[in-house]
Amino acid sequence: MTCRTASADDAELAAWLRLEQTDGVGPDTGRRLLAAFGLPSNIFSTSFSALQKIVPERVAHALLASPSDALLALIERTLAWQQQPGNHLLTLADSGYPQALLDIADPPLMLYVKGRAELLGRPSLAVVGSRNATVQGIANADRFAETLSQRGLTIISGLALGIDAAAHQGGLRGVAGNPDGGSTVAVIGTGADIVYPARNRELAHRIAEAGCIISEYPLGMPGIAANFPRRNRIISGLSSGVLVVEAALKSGSLITARMAAEQGRDVFAIPGSIHSPLAKGCHQLIKQGAKLVESAQDILEELSVLRGLAAPREVPDERAAAGKPDVTADGGQRLLAVLGYDPVSLDLLAARSGCDAATLNAQLLALELAGLVEVLPGAIYRRIG
Rank of each mutant, 00 (worst) to 15 (best):
C3K: 02
A8L: 00
L19H: 00
N42V: 04
L51K: 05
L51Y: 03
V55K: 00
E57K: 14
H61R: 11
L63R: 04
L63V: 01
S66C: 03
L71D: 01
L71A: 04
R77L: 12
R77P: 07
Q82L: 04
Y97M: 06
L102D: 00
L111S: 04
G115R: 01
L120F: 01
S124R: 13
A126R: 10
R131P: 05
V135G: 11
A141L: 09
S157K: 07
S183E: 05
T184R: 05
V185W: 09
L203F: 13
C212I: 08
S215C: 09
S215T: 10
P222I: 10
I234H: 03
I234L: 15
I235W: 05
S236V: 12
S236M: 11
V245P: 06
T256H: 04
A260S: 07
G264Q: 09
D266K: 14
I274T: 14
H275T: 08
P277V: 14
K280Q: 15
G289K: 04
S304I: 14
G308C: 09
D317L: 13
A322H: 12
G323C: 02
P325R: 14
D330P: 03
R334V: 11
L335S: 03
V338L: 15
S345L: 10
L346K: 13
D356L: 10
A357G: 04
L364A: 01
L365W: 08
L369K: 09
Y381D: 04
R383P: 05
